[in-house]
């Protein structure tokens, strides 16, 4: 270990260099260990504990929480939790998909603007990206309120009864989710679209007649890196989202995020909350794994 090396032009012993490196790494790594890795491990541990009469943790290690999550309760089996879990995956999936569908035209549109106005249009996408999610979610209250034309129109078509708002509803949750995450897809996608080689698209237009084939062969491969970042940036937080369903779905359209929040809030059942978190974690990782396997050779970020 006392070997001499030259590192970035400096001659020193390996021991000294390692020591210096450790000095730089330790504060940050220690922090992440104590407040990220360790809490994560504790969360796993707690998911096997139980709940006492006053909401305290009872250390009776068992699979009770996971059984409950799978639907086995005191009153026999129910599908409630499973439905919520699957619904969360579905909502995240639909949100990501629709956000992608809307992002492509938006990115093409911005990419073809002249440089000066392109910057302004891009800013228009960046601003919602950084606007607080509570504000962006509750702002739909206004659009969907019974007094405004959208709700009245829906009432006309007998979709809702007159005098009702369009929220809380599953529809409102989707609206809120898609608008929330659209910039998360559009921004990374744009960085790819901006660098796209349009001559390939022109060549494809000569070769293929159908627009779908042009997209699949000339556009998708070129924009895949940005698209992948966007998909991950959307899918992961969408799985755990609870603000949007809480405000726009109410009790009507619960997602796993609400379920977790309930356990740590009103129900005060940390052990069960931890187990649901584990379920969410597994689902998220599994989905990412499936996605990565389908798009081999791409990097996460």
């Amino acid at each position: 270990m006392n070997r001499l090396i030259i590192w970035y032009g400096e001659l020193l012993t390996q021991k000294k260099l390692i020591k210096r490196g450790a000095l730089f790494l330790t504060p940050g790594m220690l922090w992440l260990m104590i407040f990220l890795v360790l809490p994560g491990l504790i969360l796993i541990l707690v998911s096997f504990a139980g709940r006492g009469a006053y909401g305290e943790l009872v250390w009776d290690f068992g699979l009770a929480n996971y059984k409950r999550l799978a639907g086995y309760g005191i009153f026999g089996w129910t599908a409630d939790y499973i439905v919520i879990l699957l619904r969360s995956v579905w909502v995240a999936f639909v949100t990501t998909g629709l956000a992608v569908v809307l992002s492509y035209p938006l990115c093409f549109f911005i990419a073809r603007k002249p440089e000066r106005s392109r910057y302004m249009w891009l800013m228009m996408v960046i601003i919602p990206f950084w606007t607080n999610m509570v504000i962006r979610t509750y702002s739909w209250f206004l659009i969907l309120a019974p007094e405004l034309p959208f709700a009245k129109l829906a009432a006309c078509f007998k979709i809702i009864s007159p005098g009702m708002g369009l929220y809380p509803s599953a529809f409102a949750v989707y609206l809120g989710m898609i608008s929330m995450f659209l910039p998360f897809v559009a921004l990374p996608l744009f960085s790819s679209v901006e660098r796209m080689d349009w001559t390939l698209v022109e060549a494809a237009q000569d070769l293929y007649s159908s627009n779908i084939r042009i997209f699949m062969h000339a556009i998708l491969p070129q924009t895949l890196p940005g698209l992948s970042v966007g998909v991950i940036l959307t899918f992961v937080p969408a799985m755990g989202m609870f603000v949007v369903p809480d405000l726009l779905g109410g009790a009507k359209y619960m997602l796993v995020g609400n379920l977790i929040q309930q356990q740590f809030g009103a129900s005060r059942d940390w052990a069960f909350g931890a187990a649901i978190s584990m379920g969410l974690m597994v689902l998220t990782m599994f989905s990412l794994y499936l996605y990565r396997r389908k798009n081999k050779g791409m990097d996460l970020l």
Partner: peptide, 14 residues
């Protein structure tokens, strides 16, 4: 790559 609600839950417990 972890939903923030899980980090939040872990912090509450820790």
């Amino acid at each position: 790559i972890i939903p923030d609600i899980i980090l939040a839950a872990a912090l509450v417990v820790a």
